[in-house]
């Protein structure tokens, strides 16, 4: 389960909308059990409407800050501009961490749809998103 505040959910959606026509992306910091304390928006260094890559400097800074504060980088989010909020084959193949929460924001529909997944050895499982 992923636990967000409504402000965090809105911040992810707003960042993805600002990045149109490209995919938007960022990181999620929080606890091991999926309670998110911080949404960290990133530039999409792939600069593309079809693929994304988190800015490497943002990645380093976020990992260090999480280590220092006793938190973890718990996952990431990105948008699909013209498809559903479900991980693409590339998303699944490149998912680096089985402990992560992978949030997808679909901007194909209005209002945007946000869903979260666990990706373990190529198996995708949707999880509940709780707004606290």
């Amino acid at each position: 389960m992923l636990t967000l505040t409504s402000e965090q959910r809105d911040a992810m959606v707003a960042h993805c909308i600002r990045n149109l026509p490209n995919e938007g992306c960022g990181l999620l910091v929080g606890s091991d059990d999926g309670v998110i304390s911080q949404v960290v928006p990133s530039a999409n260094v792939a600069d593309s409407a079809r693929v994304y890559e988190i800015e490497p400097k943002v990645l380093l800074r976020t990992f260090r800050a999480a280590d220092d504060s006793g938190e973890v980088v718990a996952g990431c989010f990105h948008s699909h501009t013209h498809s559903d909020a479900y991980p693409s084959p590339t998303d699944i193949a490149q998912a680096p961490d089985p402990s992560w929460h992978y949030v997808l924001v679909s901007l194909r529909v209005t209002p945007p749809v946000l869903r979260s997944y666990r990706i373990v050895d190529g198996d995708v499982t949707e999880e509940t998103v709780t707004i606290r």
Partner: peptide
Amino acid sequence: DVRYLGGLQAPVADGDEVTLLPAVAGGFA
């Protein structure tokens, strides 16, 4: 980021810290 320092040829010196992080990337293509 070593990609701006010469990649595998990037120099390191005593006391440096090297960090490895898998890229967070994906997408449709």
